[in-house]
């Protein structure tokens, strides 16, 4: 209270942010109890009847439960590994390029996809994969005398597409972050190494990569924390919500969305949402704990 009297303005400044956090984060946090209820709008959300684990029973008895969990986890794992490796490689390679102008141009062009919305990306993908007029079918495959493929109905190709599109959109952003960290490394290390006769390759292995490790660890922890959350736009927009692709493109976020907005099954949606929120949270805590055990310096909290 004394602090409030001493700094009333500071508290006032915190107020709008607090209101947003309460409304859009804390009330929904409490709201996950609806997973144990049968939502009845007439009675009000919190006054609806308890149904115990019924919603979960329904959810876990569908084949979707396993499928969306597997898709979400596997895609995110691949994204984390591929994304990290490619972004770091690009950052190191960018640093090896001598011409400043070329560096800038490459960086800018690689960064471009990050600025496009998933809707625009879905247009780009569509221009390539449209079954009737698409560039791939009409120009490339027809040119080679191969029969056209109905891309939006062929699940087997999509795991590769999804991984590639995700990499394409985000690698520029990530490599810029790593590149920034590389430019922050003191040149003295490299000078000393050069004097000792170390080759560029040795310098990269002995100086650059060890200096990047803390950042790589933090980024990976953050990503593992999000491993139960998929990028909705990637799986919904770029696939054009094609039903035949669901076996390989349905993830927890799209599942919850469809249960809620398309089939209108609130019980199912809230059960899946609860599952996603809680397991996701446990994964964050577990990752952090493991990192703390190995190297307390690098843990998040």
């Amino acid at each position: 209270m004394r602090e409030l009297r001493k700094n009333p303005v500071l508290f006032l400044m915190l107020l709008p942010g607090m209101a947003c956090l309460l409304l859009f984060n804390y009330i929904p946090m409490a709201g996950i109890v609806i997973a144990f209820k049968n939502i009845n709008y007439a009675k009000g959300i919190f006054a609806s009847d308890w149904v115990g684990l019924k919603n979960f029973e329904f959810f876990f008895n569908t084949p979707d439960a396993f499928n969306v969990t597997r898709n979400t986890l596997l895609y995110n794992l691949v994204f984390i590994v591929v994304g990290l490796v490619v972004a770091v490689l690009f950052a190191i390679a960018l640093n090896e390029i001598r011409s400043k102008a070329a560096k800038k141009v490459y960086q800018s062009l690689m960064f471009l996809p990050y600025f496009l919305s998933w809707v625009v990306v879905s247009f780009l993908v569509y221009a390539l994969l449209n079954p009737d007029y698409g560039f791939v079918n009409k120009i490339i495959l027809e040119g080679m005398g191969i029969a056209p493929v109905s891309w939006y109905n062929e699940p087997k190709y999509w795991p590769y597409f999804i991984v590639f599109i995700n990499l394409w959109k985000n690698v520029g952003y990530n490599s810029v972050i790593y590149f920034a960290a590389i430019t922050g490394i003191s040149t003295e290390y490299y000078e000393a190494a050069a004097i000792d006769g170390a080759t560029r390759w040795q310098q990269i292995r002995a100086i650059t990569i060890p200096h990047l490790t803390p950042l790589m660890t933090i980024m990976t922890i953050l990503n593992i924390g999000k491993i139960f959350h998929a990028d909705f736009g990637l799986f919904y927009q770029t696939t054009m919500d094609s039903g035949t692709l669901y076996p390989v493109t349905n993830v927890l976020d799209t599942y919850v969305y469809r249960a809620m907005k398309v089939t209108g099954d609130m019980g199912m949606a809230s059960a899946a949402g609860f599952y996603q929120a809680v397991i996701g949270f446990i994964l964050v805590l577990a990752t952090n704990l493991i990192v703390k055990r190995i190297d307390p310096e690098k843990s998040l909290f």
Binding site: L14, G17, M18, L21, L23, F24, N25, Y26, I27, P28, M29, A30, G31, I32, I34, I45, G225, D253, V256, Y257, M260, M266, A269, S270, G273, F274, Q276, A277, G280, F281, V284, L285, F301
Partner: peptide
């Protein structure tokens, strides 16, 4: 206050309660 904000980055209620709010 930092913790109050930080917690929301680790845990969220998900789409359904958010939509209902």
């Amino acid at each position: 206050f930092t913790f109050f904000m930080f917690l929301t980055m680790l845990f969220n209620g998900g789409m359904v309660p958010w939509y209902l709010v």
